[in-house]
């Protein structure tokens, strides 16, 4: 590649008089520029933002990891109802999603697993009037067959068991600690997972003996995880708000999606995933 046609070229020396690298460099530069230009093509058309109320184009939904299955079902149903819409789900820990939004990541809808996370996005002027659309409870999740032979929340203090919680920075971690505080249990924690799905995966794989997850996570685990109820009096309920974002690239699609989530059809889908009514 370094121009061995040139007689004066010495091995290892810089190929200064060869024009080919220049051509290559320009071509590569042009390629990079055109590739960058392509990314703008996914934005909705201008007609969409005025007058015409039919949702179309891409609707980018940032949703809490615990909504993975429920919002998957809602996405399918919503796209059936609106064939011109492509819903794209961006799932993750609520607080990670909040950080993305605060840093200016584009999205149309935000659904978080706790009101505080939503409040920070609203306070930053990034979301309008959130609606509570679902509730969720907590359970002790254990691998099927309960190999650690847990009977209740007290067992999470057992040093010989491998116990996981969500990190205290995500809602499922805050709720779990609130529940443990209520019961006066100091858990012997072996790992603090970045989001509830990561925690559930390790429980389902049998690597952890137990963890505290949402009721819906056990419902979605297709039999690899079973639930042990929290003791009476330890009542921690997660409430889920959803809102359209102020700078939504596709505001029509955003409000149509939120309307669908709080509709009877949306409620049904959430309820079959294990969520409670708001």
């Amino acid at each position: 590649m370094t121009g061995d046609r040139h007689v004066d070229h010495r091995p290892g020396g810089p190929a200064r008089s060869v024009p080919r690298p220049l051509v290559v460099a320009v071509l590569v530069g042009a390629l990079v520029l055109t590739a960058c230009g392509d990314t703008t093509s996914a934005t909705p058309t201008a007609e969409n933002t005025r007058g015409d109320r039919t949702p179309r184009g891409e609707v980018l939904v940032s949703a809490a990891a615990s909504l993975t299955d429920a919002f998957g079902a809602i996405e399918d149903a919503f796209e059936d109802a609106h064939p011109d819409v492509d819903v794209v789900l961006n799932l993750g820990g609520s607080s990670a999603l909040r950080e993305q939004l605060l840093e200016g990541a584009p999205a149309d809808v935000f659904a978080s697993a706790d009101p505080d996370t939503m409040a920070e996005v609203v306070d930053a002027g990034l979301a309008d009037g959130p609606t509570t659309f679902a509730t969720n409870g907590l359970v002790i999740a254990v691998p099927t067959g309960n190999p650690g032979a847990l009977t209740g929340l007290d067992d999470l203090a057992d040093d010989d068991l491998l116990v996981g919680l969500c990190a205290p920075t995500v809602p499922c971690g805050m709720f779990a600690r609130r529940a443990l505080d209520m019961a006066g249990v100091v858990a012997a924690v072996d790992t603090e997972e970045p989001d509830v799905r990561a925690l559930l995966t390790k429980i389902a794989a049998g690597e952890l003996d137990a963890g505290i997850t949402y009721v819906t996570d056990v419902a979605s685990s297709s039999g690899s995880v079973e639930a042990i109820d929290l003791p009476d009096g330890v009542d921690v309920v997660a409430t889920y708000p959803v809102a359209t974002l102020a700078d939504a690239p596709n505001p029509t699609g955003a409000s149509a999606f939120v309307d669908f989530v709080v509709s009877d059809r949306g409620r049904d889908l959430l309820s079959s995933a294990g969520f409670g009514p708001p």
Partner: peptide
Amino acid sequence: TSRRASPRPPIGLLLP
């Protein structure tokens, strides 16, 4: 070759 004065780099390489 590595000891000689460094050549004036062509702009087509410098920019990228």
